[in-house]
Design a protein around this nucleic acid. Sequence first.
DNA 1: GTAGTCTATTGACCGTTGTTCAATAGTGCG
DNA 2: CGCACTATTGAACAACGGTCAATAGACTAC
Lengths: 227, 227
Amino acid sequence: MLYDEAAVRPRRVARIATRIVKKTRVRLDTDERRAQLVALAKKVFAESAYDEISIDDLAKAAKISKGLLYHYFPTKRDLYIAGLSEIADELVAAVSSLDETLAPIDRVRVSIDAYLDHITRHARAFVSLMRGGIGSDPEVASVVEGVRTRLFDTFLNGQPFAPAFAESARFQTAVRGWIGFVEGASIDWCIHPRLTRLELRELFVQVLFEILRVVAPAELVWKTLPK
Amino acid sequence: MLYDEAAVRPRRVARIATRIVKKTRVRLDTDERRAQLVALAKKVFAESAYDEISIDDLAKAAKISKGLLYHYFPTKRDLYIAGLSEIADELVAAVSSLDETLAPIDRVRVSIDAYLDHITRHARAFVSLMRGGIGSDPEVASVVEGVRTRLFDTFLNGQPFAPAFAESARFQTAVRGWIGFVEGASIDWCIHPRLTRLELRELFVQVLFEILRVVAPAELVWKTLPK
DNA sequence: GTAGTCTATTGACCGTTGTTCAATAGTGCG
DNA sequence: CGCACTATTGAACAACGGTCAATAGACTAC
């Protein structure tokens, strides 16, 4: 399959054959081509693992040559990260449509709802994003960690924390932990949906509040903490 | 460097030279060799990423030929997983020395202490274990997920839960989330130690209890829950 | 129409990788 | 000494990620 006849055929003959068959090249604008390739990467890498997909596979799927792919992305990893970043952006964007008129607690509720909605619809992409196709690659890790901090910002943005509270080490560690809680339970839930989406959401909200209560000194507790 | 003189030298010449130099082969027992190779894999893969280390590197480090490596492990991935599994076993073993005489809450405390002790001493190995060198590989994922469930068992084993409680979906989801909490905060803490080890431990314990309180119906709450 | 320019596109090529396998060399037994 | 057993080797292989000079389609200018 690798060394088939066409591959070793001399260049000139191939050229003539090309003319005869009228195999016309498709010329695309730079931006269109880039967008097409990133879209393909998003789809393919959400379905299969990083090293199960070769550059040749991608080129064949895009109906272009390998060389052209390298004209747009310096390395396979760059293409992968481009796709992953878009998946990440979509997730963050889906969550961050916040309604200023809502009470803080309901704002969290809405955000988590949007979050669960989105990862339900894009379960495979979500898992492959969070599990990190190339776990040890620093760029990939920074995309994933970026999602966490951006999600955190979106969940809690504009909430009336006392500044001293928000900067305390306990608070930051606890929130990072809560993100881990949500992530772990979400991934588990994607595979074994033992709770309804609503039950899961309420669990997240309740746990968040309990964690904040544990972490915060009494006088700094979030104003809207129930009871 | 790749195609150096020695490499392309005809076999017979090489053999004669070998005799002259008296380069004796080292013959090892099967189990010893296997153990040596797994130990090497553990060390190397804890330090560097999966695809930064080639089979040639490993063979050279072990002072054996590539072929022999494949005599013991059918594929590079198998060797990697063998090393990873030992790292995982060591972590679980370190945590699971439980003292039956202690009160349940203190047993959790001791376990978490051992956990933090261990990941402090083997931070790199821990991170590369939990971040998964080949994130999407199902076998690797199952090793990591195995660590989570075994840690969970160790943390909570022998605690006086009502069976109905332990089997409830809310409980299981919540505990899986707590594992995510501990993991996320631990990895964060390995990189930015903003809290003391003791503070972190107490945070974990408190959050665990609050989560259990949130999740459990009143009459089933862990007997030892403080207050 | 034709010549020339620009650049999107190609395919042959390279070195390295993971993997295979027939050949080899130590070791112990009769 | 001869023989079997197996730990060990090294050359070969296909596939991979990546490079590059050459090509072809679209545009402008005359």
